Simulated assay, not measured.
Amino acid sequence: MKIIVTGAAGFIGSHLCERLLAEEQHQVIGIDGFINPLLKSIKQRNLTALLQHPRFTFVNENLLTIDWKKILINVDVIYHLAAMPGVRSSWGKDFDPYVSNNISVTQRLLESCRNVQIKKLIYISTSSIYGEVHGKVTEDRKPSPLSPYGVTKLTGEYLCKVYQKTDNIPVTILRYFTVYGPRQRGDMAFHRFILHKLQNKPIPIYGSGKQTRDFTYVSDCVEATAQVLHANNVIGETINIGGKERASILDIISILEDILGETVEVEFKEKPRGEPMHTWADVTKAEKLLHYKPKISLEIGLQHELEDLKRLYQGGG
């Protein structure tokens, strides 16, 4: 099967490419435009193993200008992960790149898919489209995003549904809940926590620390994502992908202390705009359609991320 993964050099995208290549029948084309130059070295590290794989082809092009007609020849499945991430940086003058890279890019891809025969297009969305909710959230919950980032990802979902309805593009939407693990971006909480600790600096906590998240380890997330390839009855579906454990930020600090065997110093900061107090995925549909069962505990997952960041910042690897 010939598969395209957009955002292939990113945190989740690089893991997904590796997982897909574990099945010998797949050929993977990874596309990434390195739209944030500050992340280029990290993304190149993410690609290290992939670039040596005989069934992997890397295309370094901007999705706003790429020639989709050429790229889509004989492609069976598309995973569309590429996006401008981050809630806090999506406000004010920084909003324009979110429109370009989350909305316009998605529309260009969908428009190009009108003229080709693909089996599935999997659009990766986010729990940020839900906004503030109480208790477990199901996929039929009315969206109410709290940030411009969430709005752009929800717009991408609506575009997918429009093109599916009018042009029969076989779309499946996955909504990820707070993915963590090795290769996590530097702006994300666990990466920041661990880096500050490695540098003997207080760990910044935005808000009270009592906010909770449905934390999803990257291998669990990627396994569910890969299973969409083989799943029946997923076209037209929207599916939550949550984790094995839900915890507060203060819980995470406590787990880090247990792993490190020492006290962690924290520094409380003002709660940022656009972030909900709680997230919690109802993954019943993922269990049914994808046979999803998350396996990795927070303690084990954090240990893996800690080891990876030690190699990055202390071991040169």
Rank of each mutant, 00 (worst) to 15 (best):
R88T: 15
L109Q: 02
S112A: 15
N115V: 07
Q107Y: 03
Q107G: 03
V116Q: 04
D96M: 12
L109G: 04
N102H: 05
V87R: 00
V87K: 04
S100E: 14
P85L: 09
G86I: 09
N102Q: 01
N102P: 05
F95V: 06
W91F: 15
R108N: 12
N102W: 06
P85W: 01
S90M: 13
P85N: 08
K93F: 10
G92C: 14
V87C: 11
S90Q: 07
L110H: 02
S89M: 13
S89A: 13
F95N: 00
T106R: 03
L109P: 04
V87N: 10
R88W: 09
V99H: 06
V99P: 01
S89H: 11
S100N: 11
F95K: 00
Q107L: 05
V99E: 05
D96R: 11
V116Y: 08
C113L: 15
E111K: 09
N102F: 04
S112E: 13
W91Y: 15
V116T: 09
G92I: 12
Q107H: 03
N115L: 03
D96N: 10
V87I: 15
R88H: 12
S112T: 14
L109M: 12
L109E: 00
S104R: 04
R88N: 14
V105H: 07
F95S: 07
L109R: 03
T106M: 09
N102K: 01
R108T: 10
D96Q: 09
V87D: 02
N102G: 05
C113V: 01
R108V: 11
S90H: 08
F95Q: 08
S89Y: 12
R108M: 13
S89F: 11
D94S: 14
L109S: 00
T106L: 10
P85A: 11
R114S: 03
W91C: 09
S100A: 11
I103A: 06
V87F: 08
W91M: 14
S112L: 08
K93W: 01
R88D: 15
T106E: 00
P85M: 08
V87G: 05
N115T: 08
G92V: 07
G92T: 06
S89G: 13
F95A: 07
I103W: 06
N115W: 02
E111Y: 07
S112I: 06
C113E: 00
N101S: 10
I103Q: 09
P97V: 08
R108K: 13
R108Y: 08
G86E: 12
E111H: 07
V116D: 00
P85V: 06
V87T: 13
N115S: 05
P85D: 09
P97I: 06
G92L: 15
Q107R: 03
E111V: 04
N115G: 03
L110M: 02
R108L: 14
S112F: 13
